[in-house]
């Protein structure tokens, strides 16, 4: 079952309603599909095409541009080791080599038990805390090889890895596909209102009402 679940369809419709044009929701919706399955399948892309009113090929066109979307199953945990310049200077490549040895896979590969996929990634914006990595987009900072081994051992054992930073202390590391653990929940009743651009032809009311005489 690769189409979105009923619950996710409802969520998708809520997300689409926040944009003046439905296709704008596509990248968040692809994330939703990836959250459901851990990767993005052809069926999911076809379903998203129906929801936003474009062709499946257009969805695929967008999807394949972005590195975070995986078009085949990957591990429960995506281990992304940074080797860009700031990390390279402080041992990022050595950390990647250690990760290859420890997990027995090359970048792009997945461990046989399906738990870990390894990637060497570009700058992940924690440059002063080099060398660093992300596991399902949670940071591990200033990592020694021992730190790396401990994080992997914790995840294998189902323990909370102290070596990863989460939004709240002790928060679980979700499986691959889930990014933030909470969502924007703005329903239509709370919103100022979203209209397609062609239905708006005037300046917003506050701008006219409050303009001073010299508006230049």
């Amino acid at each position: 079952m690769s189409r979105l679940t009923d619950a996710n369809v409802a969520l998708a419709r809520e997300m689409i309603a926040r944009y003046p044009r439905p296709k704008s929701a596509l990248i968040p919706l692809l994330h939703l599909a990836q959250e459901q399955e851990g990767w993005v399948s052809d069926d999911a892309m076809a379903h998203l095409a129906e929801l936003v009113g474009v062709t499946a090929a257009e969805v695929r066109g967008t999807c394949t541009f972005y590195e975070m979307f995986k078009l085949h199953p990957v591990g429960t945990y995506m281990v992304n080791v940074c080797t860009n310049i700031s990390c390279q200077l402080l041992g990022g490549e050595e950390l990647l080599h250690h990760a290859e040895e420890a997990l027995g896979i090359r970048p792009g590969g997945t461990t046989e038990d399906g738990l870990f996929t390894l990637e060497d990634v570009e700058c992940i914006a924690a440059c002063t805390e080099a060398p660093c990595m992300q596991v399902n987009y949670r940071y591990g900072l200033r990592l020694s090889t021992d730190d790396f081994d401990q994080i992997i051992a914790d995840l294998r054992a189902g323990r909370h890895p102290q070596g990863l930073v989460t939004a709240n202390p002790g928060e679980p590391i979700p499986s691959h596909g889930t990014l933030g653990l909470t969502r924007q929940q703005t329903g239509e009743s709370k919103m100022a209102g979203v209209l397609p651009p062609e239905q708006v032809n005037e300046a917003p009311v506050w701008l006219n009402a409050n303009a001073t005489e010299d508006a230049s």
């Binding site: 992940i124 914006a125 987009y137 933030g180 924007q184 919103m191």
Partner: peptide, 26 residues
Amino acid sequence: RGEMAIAQQRLADALNEAYEAGYIGK
């Protein structure tokens, strides 16, 4: 940015709070 899961979570929480408190919306 897609890879910034914690920033997304914090902003989602903050937007929900701010909408609820009347700082955003109508």
